[in-house]
Simulated scan of single mutants.
Amino acid sequence: MSLEKKGKTIAIIAVSLVVIAGIAIGAYRGRTIEQTPSEVTATVGGGQAAAGNDEGLTVLKTWTRKDCSLAPWLVTDKLGYFKEEGIKLVFTGELQPNQQIPSIINGNNDVASVHPNQLAVAVAGGAKLKGVSRGIIEPDESVDPKFRHMWFFVNPTKHPEIKSIADLKNFPGKIKFSIITTNTCTDFLTNTLFDKYGIPKDKIEWVTMPDIQAIQALKQGLVDVSPVHPPFYKGMEDAGAIRIADSFETGLGSLAGLTAYYFTEDFINQNPDTVKRFVRAISKGQKYADEHPDQVAQWVSDAIGIPVTGNHWYADDTTIDENDLIPWIKQLEDNKVIPVGKVKASDLVVHVFEQYGNETKK
């Protein structure tokens, strides 16, 4: 790609972020009522945030989650770890995926978690964002497979010949994959598996939808393969789908499911003590989630309204290894999403806060 075209690509990304940020500001008006994570229920709109006992707490805002990413926020709030650190975390309403990062940029929300490729695309477009602590990881082989970051399902009635990802090499024509949004874990892991088995990636046709909708879409034959996250594994199996691969098969190790908690650079510079306290609190919640999976699965199930048998696996060591970010960035470069060399691993993180999460490490 020429330098001129590279420049145009980044300009387009930057303009898109600005436009989406503007849309998100308007979209926030009149959304669901603000609530703490532990007040979230499967009922649309949830309940009124509890009053009292919050005087003097620092309010941190993030969007409402009713998906695979809920567990650490819910646990940390429910067990009082945020309050111990002088924080009240407030869920501000559900957002579409393409509104989430812009809501951090424009200040409607303060903090969230993100995969490295999502963060890299935003930074390449000019966003001033930094990861401060490690969140989700891919567990090793000693951990129950139900905690692996992603399982890939097919409908055996429609595709009885597909028993593995490798079998897709002989699939005629395009292969429809469900995906929440592009440049996330789903296409990163799918592309990695396709490269591993020598399957041309141009056979993939992405169909955007939430994981919960992917269950029905696969059953109805609207998509051919549905990669989904742990809270939705049981729903897929109950619908008759079969697993043909998972994220562990990529061979990427712990980085296969990697996420980081992130803030804007301005927020970090203006509120370093708040960021420190957040990292310390959320790391306690992550550890509890790993150590009490059945209890946390029930809490998440109650909140999102479907049976849940497992959640993601979370890092005990909150240090973000910059080497783990490189494969995520390189795939974006290889797919010409961002120009080669535009974003370095060091552009995505600040390491000063990780130590506070590791204070509680056993």
Rank of each mutant, 00 (worst) to 15 (best):
F171G: 07
L222W: 13
F177R: 11
D144C: 03
A217W: 06
G221H: 03
S226W: 07
M236Y: 01
S254V: 10
S247G: 10
P172R: 10
E205I: 02
P227E: 03
K169V: 02
N183L: 14
Q220C: 01
S247Y: 07
S226P: 03
T181C: 12
D202L: 05
T186M: 11
K176S: 14
K169E: 04
D167L: 01
V228A: 01
I162A: 05
I175Q: 03
A241S: 15
V154E: 11
T192M: 06
A245C: 06
L189G: 07
G173Y: 00
T192I: 08
G221A: 08
P156M: 06
D167C: 09
G221L: 08
N183M: 14
Y197E: 05
A217N: 10
L218R: 00
S178D: 10
E237P: 07
P231T: 00
Y197R: 11
N191Y: 13
T182H: 14
P160M: 10
F248D: 08
T250A: 09
L252P: 00
S254K: 13
T157L: 14
N191S: 11
R148E: 09
V228Y: 00
R243T: 15
D238L: 15
P210G: 02
T182F: 15
N191C: 02
F188T: 09
N155E: 02
W206H: 03
D202N: 08
V225M: 06
N155T: 04
K146H: 05
P172A: 05
K146S: 03
V143A: 02
L252V: 05
W151Q: 15
T181Q: 13
M209F: 01
I244R: 04
I244H: 09
F152A: 03
R243Y: 00
K174E: 06
E249L: 00
G240C: 07
M236C: 09
E205N: 11
V143H: 01
T192K: 13
I215T: 07
P156I: 00
S226G: 04
F171P: 04
T208Y: 06
I180D: 12
P145Y: 09
K176W: 11
G240Y: 09
E237V: 12
I242H: 12
H159D: 14
L255A: 12
R243V: 15
Q216C: 00
K203W: 01
S178W: 01
D238N: 15
K176C: 12
L222N: 15
K203Q: 06
N155F: 05
N183T: 15
A239P: 00
A214C: 04
W151M: 14
A245T: 01
S226T: 03
N191D: 08
P200H: 01
V143T: 02
T190Q: 08
T181N: 14
N155D: 08
P227S: 00
Y233G: 02
L252W: 02
I199R: 04
P172I: 12
E161M: 08
I244S: 04
L222G: 11
I244K: 05
Q216P: 03
N155G: 07
K158I: 12
S164K: 12
K234V: 11
A217E: 10
I165R: 09
L193N: 07
G253P: 05
S226H: 07
I244W: 06
I244A: 08
S254Q: 12
V143E: 00
T192P: 01
A166K: 15
A245K: 04
K196E: 05
Q216A: 14
K201C: 07
K163L: 14
P231V: 04
R243L: 10
G221E: 01
F147K: 10
D187Q: 09
T192S: 10
N170A: 15
H229W: 11
